[in-house]
């Protein structure tokens, strides 16, 4: 039984379908990468799992099961008891994600206080332990620091400490390294993977950086315009992508373009509210689109080579990576 199972999740803001019929599952202890351009709905989908979609956003799903428990019918209080405890999330901008008015120590112990109670001293001890676990030197002193006194990388470590404070079963990391220096990015990724193993938690890594996914994820979901377009084990996806979008994303990696004078790009942008094409949502930008792609919406096709939403998936022998 998977740890998290999402069946037909949709999130709409007014007329905009940010997430459109998403099916997703993640097993205990698994590292899942969710990849896609800005606006592909990857963050929104995970915010919906966290229960953080605020008005005017509307979340619908046939089922969202977490750890054997159906989340869709829970009341707000029951939902809050899971949020931040069993499912935790860290965000893209560490510098603005921590409250500037409170000390690091306060912000860590607050989560502990809400979900686990305990005494002031036990919470403080745990906060110290967490700070050293996430690799912050001199944790005693850092407890009393304010976020503006720390660097971006340090703040992201504090965010991670807050997220893992209650030993969650699922950690969602939304572009955790995007706002950081390249040298720090690798450290933070290593830290997340180390903690994932140590705590045995499942990790969802949302990113638009294929390189990050390649280094970390066991399985990758590719999203486009709110839909899942391809999902596969990481290795196979990188060597033999089946969806033209995945292929185009991989093709745009600088590492793969060394022998070419110009880096290939995907023309156009993700469709918005008013320019959603008919048929396959990717067809206007697709290199291998054919007449039928504009007519009918392709279904998700499952098989032993993962899942793909395409009328004309690339054949494995057609593309060499």
């Amino acid at each position: 039984m998977p740890l998290l199972e999402i069946d037909n999740l949709s999130v709409t803001f007014g007329g905009l379908r940010a997430v459109d019929g998403l099916d997703l599952s993640i097993d205990e202890g698994e590292v899942l990468g969710i990849v896609g351009e800005s606006g592909s709905g990857k963050s929104v989908a995970m915010l919906a799992v966290m229960g953080l979609i605020a008005f005017p956003g509307v979340v619908r799903a046939n089922a969202v099961r977490f750890n054997g428990r159906e989340l869709t019918g829970l009341n707000k209080r029951e939902r809050r008891n899971l949020t931040g405890k069993d499912i935790a999330m860290i965000f893209q901008e560490p510098m603005t994600s921590l409250n500037p008015c409170f000390t690091v120590g306060f912000q860590i112990t607050e989560t502990l206080k809400v979900h686990e109670g305990g005494t002031r001293n036990t919470r403080r001890e745990r906060a110290l332990e967490l700070l050293s676990q996430v690799g912050i030197p001199d944790p005693e002193r850092r407890l009393n620091s304010f976020p503006h006194q720390l660097s971006g990388g340090m703040n992201q470590r504090v965010m991670i400490a807050i997220a893992i404070a209650c030993r969650p079963k699922l950690l969602i990391a939304d572009e955790p390294t995007t706002a950081l220096d390249v040298t720090i990015q690798a450290q933070i990724l290593q830290l997340l993977l180390g903690l994932q193993r140590e705590y045995g938690m499942a990790l969802v890594l949302i990113t638009h950086d294929m390189g990050v996914v390649a280094e970390t994820a066991q399985r990758v979901s590719v999203m486009y315009a709110g839909q899942l377009v391809e999902e596969r084990a990481a290795g196979a996806l990188f060597t033999h992508p089946r969806h033209p979008y995945t292929h185009a994303l991989l093709d745009a990696l600088p590492e793969r373009g060394r022998d070419r004078p110009r880096l290939p790009t995907i023309p156009g942008v993700v469709p918005g509210l008013y320019d959603r094409p008919s048929g396959c949502l990717f067809n206007p930008r697709c290199a291998s689109a054919q007449a039928d792609c504009t007519e009918r919406v392709p279904p998700i096709e499952s098989g032993n080579r993962g899942r793909v939403r395409c009328w004309h998936p690339l054949r494995e022998d057609a593309v060499g990576a």
């Binding site: 966290m50 949020t83 931040g84 994600s97 409250n99 500037p100 008015c101 989560t111 809400v114």
Partner: peptide
Amino acid sequence: HEDYVRTARAKGLAPWRVIGFHALRN
């Protein structure tokens, strides 16, 4: 609309605490 208010909600805090404490203080 600040990110840290989203963080406060992601901690599973009650709305009164998110608004009356984390947001109001700022």
